[in-house]
Write a protein that binds this DNA or RNA. Structure first.
Length: 277
DNA sequence: CACGAACCCTGGCTGC
DNA sequence: TGCAGCCAGGGTTCGT
């Protein structure tokens, strides 16, 4: 579910709710997520002050005043649901797996229907070596993500550009929605061989990626099925899709052809075969 | 090594 | 109404 803009939005909500506050209790209601939660997860975090919540790729990193950082991934259906103090929170459901409370009465529930998400703890000075963070590609919104950088990373890849952009080791944070949207804006076919995306095509693609991600963050992400912000509000960017989930609808660019859906490495791609080459 | 398919899990929707 | 089958924003593991 959540790609970079959704995770960024959730991080901002968590930062507002948690930064500067201390975890009081942490309740593990179900530990068999994507990987089993460490058995001592709660005791290692309880009493810790949350210094900063930030994002790397699609991971949420919660820095504390202790030696460890909490790592969270939302998988396809994960949510972080914030309930502010002074209000009776809604009753917990079967998919509220971990409940965090703070010393000022904030409640955050990690909820994940499909349990593809994960939580872990990692020594702050060894984050780079964490197996899930190791080898991740550059942040697409970072200053060092440029057309030359992208084409270098695509060099030698014979796989379709769609698959290459989904590979978090090439560039970190894109998912199925924003790859389709960025390729549409750059007028590049998802079927094009990755190593041919260089020069002028890369010069179109990089700004297209940056722009669509920035617009989506400004809209609070895209809500299709499960995704909500930490506050529970929906994102709005799904109303601005040009091609994603719009099979058969007219192309927003040429208005003549209709958006086509194809399956690549088991996942849907949406594009205009005329505008995108 | 690089690639694609299978798999992890639950729930919503479609079509018979 | 019921149920089988398909599909979903992700990522790892396995086989070729």
């Amino acid at each position: 579910m959540p790609e970079l803009p959704e995770v960024e939005t959730v991080c901002r909500g968590l930062a507002e709710a948690l930064e500067g506050h201390r975890f009081a209790t942490i309740e593990l209601r179900r530990g068999d997520l994507r990987w089993p939660l460490p058995a001592d997860f709660a005791e290692r975090l309880e009493g810790r002050l949350v210094r900063r919540v930030r994002r790397r790729a699609k991971y949420i990193l919660l820095e504390t005043d202790g030696a460890e950082v909490m790592l969270a991934h939302l998988g396809m259906s994960g949510k972080m649901l914030v309930e502010p103090p002074g209000r009776t929170p809604p009753p917990l459901g079967p998919h509220d797996h971990v409940i965090f409370t703070t010393d000022h009465g904030m409640r955050v529930a990690f909820n994940d229907v499909r349990r593809f998400g994960m939580l872990d703890l990692c020594a702050a000075d060894a984050l780079d070596q964490h197996p899930l963070l190791q080898g991740l590609g550059p942040e697409p919104l970072g200053n060092d993500f440029s057309a030359p950088v992208l084409s270098t990373r695509l060099a030698g890849k014979r796989t379709p550009i769609k698959a290459a952009l989904l590979d978090q080791h090439v560039v970190a944070g894109l998912g199925n929605i924003y790859v389709s949207e960025a390729l549409f804006r750059a007028r590049i076919s998802p079927r094009r061989q990755a190593n041919t995306v260089a020069g002028a095509r890369a010069e179109r693609l990089v700004p297209a990626i940056k722009l669509v991600l920035q617009e989506a963050i400004a809209a609070g992400g895209s809500s299709l099925r499960d995704y909500v912000q930490a506050s529970g509000e929906l994102g709005c960017f799904q109303h601005n899709f040009d091609v994603y989930d719009r099979e058969g609808e007219p192309c927003q660019n040429c208005q003549r052809n209709s958006v086509r859906r194809i399956v690549q490495s088991g996942r849907s791609s949406f594009y205009c075969p005329t505008c995108q080459r």
